Each structure stands twice: as C-alpha cells, then as structure tokens.
Amino acid sequence: MSKKIVTNELPENYEELKKAANRTANWKARYDAVEELGRYNTSQVIDVLKVRVANDPVYKIKEAAHRILLEFGEDVQLPKQTKFEVIKGANKVFVRVKKSLPAGHTFEEFLTKLKRMRIDVYDAYEGEKGDNFKTWLENEWANLK
C-alpha cells in the first residue's frame, strides 16, 4: 500500500509538525513528524526535510527524510553515518553527569540525571542505539573515569 502524496498543499497542522520535526528532546516525535510531512510535497516541507537530512543526530531520521526527498524527486545526498560520537562532546557530558552524582551511585541514578540535565544527548543516543541503548550506555558509564 503506497501513501498518497499531496502537492501544493500544506497539512492543517503544518506548524505543529514543523515544531515536532525540530524538537531536540524527542527523536520519536521527530521521526513521526518527518513521516507525516512526507505526505505533502511542498517547498516548505522540502526545506524542513533537508534540514533533518543535514542536521539530525539520529541517523534513522536522516534516512527517512532522505527517502521522502528522493520520492519527491529532490536531488539530495545522505550523509555518511558517524561511527563514533553522535553528539560532539557527549563523553564530556557523561563525565560531568557522573561527577555530579555521589560516589557509589547506581546506573539508574546516572540515567535519570543524564535525562534531566541533557535530554538532547539522552534522546539522540536513545534514537541512534535503539534497543541496545541502555546496555551501551551502562557500558559507557562503567568505563567513565
């Protein structure tokens, strides 16, 4: 089943979808907004999708925006997936969060504080790592100095 693409018409909730597509603290909302916007082939939507391809820290969102832009007939390149830091300086953020907690704190306390202090970092890595996020982060936490 293919989706119906509307041209030269914005969705009624365009402003809301545009905000959701740019919301740094919720990768799932960004992904859903990109998919919804992908039903409307307009210059405004194309601009939003190009920003997501170029700047989203979650590769799955870059891929979705890229796929939609190609469906719209746009000539756009998908950037290579980063192999190391999803967010530049994230390791320093992890160290700062760990040092802000008392000695002997648990991983769950670290996770809660990271989410509270830097939801953007938490969210980007959660989106990028998927089901392996907590296992990956716990390993990172355990190896922090």
Rank of each mutant, 00 (worst) to 15 (best):
M1K: 14
K3R: 15
K3F: 08
V6W: 04
N8E: 15
L10G: 07
P11F: 06
P11T: 11
E12C: 10
Y14G: 01
Y14L: 10
E16S: 13
E16W: 05
K18N: 07
K19T: 15
A20V: 03
N22T: 14
T24P: 01
T24A: 12
A25R: 05
N26V: 05
W27N: 02
W27S: 03
K28F: 09
K28N: 08
A29S: 12
R30I: 00
Y31I: 01
D32V: 11
A33P: 00
E35V: 08
E35L: 12
E36W: 04
L37P: 00
L37S: 02
G38D: 03
G38E: 04
R39I: 07
R39G: 14
R39S: 11
Y40A: 06
Q44G: 09
I46T: 14
V48G: 02
V48Q: 05
L49P: 10
L49R: 00
K50S: 08
K50D: 07
K50R: 15
V51S: 11
R52N: 15
A54T: 10
A54N: 07
A54E: 13
P57A: 11
V58A: 00
Y59N: 07
K60F: 04
K60L: 12
I61H: 01
I61Q: 01
E63R: 09
E63Y: 05
E63A: 09
A64M: 13
A64R: 13
H66F: 08
H66K: 02
H66M: 02
R67S: 10
R67D: 14
R67F: 08
I68F: 03
L69I: 09
L69S: 06
L69M: 11
L70G: 07
L70D: 03
E71M: 05
F72A: 10
G73K: 03
D75Q: 14
Q77W: 07
P79K: 04
P79D: 10
K80C: 06
Q81K: 15
K83W: 09
K83T: 15
F84C: 01
F84Y: 07
E85T: 00
V86N: 04
K92L: 13
K92C: 06
F94L: 05
V95H: 05
R96H: 09
R96P: 06
K98Q: 13
K99T: 14
S100A: 06
S100C: 04
L101W: 06
P102G: 04
A103R: 13
A103N: 12
G104T: 03
T106Q: 10
F110S: 07
L111S: 12
L111G: 11
T112G: 11
K113D: 08
L114H: 03
R116F: 09
M117D: 13
M117Y: 06
M117S: 08
M117A: 04
R118M: 00
D123T: 04
A124D: 02
Y125H: 06
E126Y: 08
G127T: 00
G127M: 06
E128N: 02
K129G: 07
K129F: 13
G130T: 05
D131S: 13
N132K: 12
N132V: 10
F133K: 05
T135E: 09
W136L: 02
N139F: 08
N139L: 11
W141K: 06
A142D: 14
N143A: 09
K145E: 15
